[in-house]
């Protein structure tokens, strides 16, 4: 039991922190510009593919630097020439634009790299077990993932709370108009935020590619879960995003490890049903099964009852 707890926690941390890397960028964009960027996970996918291509020629490490930069530049360009252009057509058009962009990037990736899964591998230097507990290895690469995510959290937190740019960003989040009237170039800040946000997604892609496999559907898999984190964490709250990410990461890994079913609960009260009862699916419902539903249930409940999210200051 102890080993399950330890490893489930570790697995949950890895997933959660990876989600956080994605969500941190999206939170930044969402809270400043009010746009839920549907294509955010697509930039994550682009990060993985760019890094894969770079790794074919130069190895993993240059990819870790080059790919996020490329993605960030691409993101900034999308903001400058796409979003800003669509902005005049209204809020719905912006959402639809990012949605269309997500669709388009997925097709573009299939065009450029093909439909099959890419053999994007982690660097050999990290291909060893970090430690072994109860006969089970914890790969060094996952340790590296945890390290990078935490570094990003600390870095972002420092920038936002300690620097001048951070102050402007904070102000732009809560009072965009006031910041603009103070003479700051708000469009430029937006473009920068979009670039940095997508670059962060790119980092997540580079790091997750070897673990979660690099394939054209990888954006779709994480796409909506990132929204859950941003909304649940609360608008403009980095800490909220971190908490929500960890919550969802741990939820997913523990749910698979612990096999509680409704049956077990009912058995406590001495109730049992036949296997051919027409609500059998309900009685045999187990934790691993309902795990994928929980994040979305959380999303809907938060939106209904606490639209500010866990730690948010403004409403969504």
């Amino acid at each position: 039991m102890v080993e399950i707890v330890i490893f489930s926690t570790l697995n949950g941390l890895v997933t959660g922190l990876l989600l956080f890397m994605l969500a941190s960028g999206l939170t930044l964009i969402f809270s400043m510009m009010g746009i839920l960027n549907f294509a955010h996970a697509s930039f994550y996918m682009l990060g993985a593919y760019f890094a894969y291509s770079v790794s074919l020629f130069l190895g993993f490490w240059p990819g870790l630097i080059v790919a996020p930069l490329l993605v960030g530049v691409l993101g900034a360009l999308v903001e400058r020439y796409g979003l800003r252009y669509v902005h005049k057509s209204g809020h719905v058009a912006e959402l639809v634009f990012t949605f269309g962009l997500a669709f388009f990037i997925e097709e573009l990736v299939q065009f450029a790299w093909g439909k099959e899964t890419k053999n994007y591998q982690q660097p050999e230097i990290l291909d060893f077990p970090l430690f072994t507990l109860f006969g089970q290895n914890f790969p060094a690469y996952k340790g590296f993932m945890i390290f990078i995510s935490i570094a990003i959290f600390i870095g972002l937190y420092q920038v936002i709370t300690r620097t001048r740019i951070g102050l402007i960003i904070q102000a732009a989040i809560s009072h965009p108009n006031a910041v603009s009237s103070l003479g700051h170039n708000v469009p430029l800040i937006f473009m920068g935020a979009f670039g940095v946000g997508t670059a962060l997604a790119g980092v997540a892609g580079v790091i997750a590619g070897p673990v979660l496999t690099t394939f054209p559907g990888m954006a779709l898999v994480l796409g909506s879960i990132v929204f859950v984190i941003v909304v649940v964490g609360g608008l403009g709250s980095l800490t909220g995003a971190l908490i929500a990410s960890l919550l969802i990461g741990l939820l997913q890994s523990y749910a698979i490890a612990l096999e509680f079913a409704v049956n077990d609960l009912l058995a406590l009260f001495d109730i049992s049903f036949d296997a051919d009862h027409f609500l059998n699916d309900l009685w045999t419902l187990s934790l691993p099964q309902i795990a994928p539903v929980l994040p979305y249930l959380l999303l809907v409940l938060i939106l209904i009852f606490r639209p500010t999210g866990l730690l948010g200051k403004r409403e969504t």
Partner: peptide, 15 residues
């Protein structure tokens, strides 16, 4: 086709 990271399953099998 939906599970991307099988680590939690393997953890369970291992233990």
């Amino acid at each position: 086709g939906r599970v991307k990271d099988f680590t939690p399953y393997v953890t369970k099998i291992q233990s």
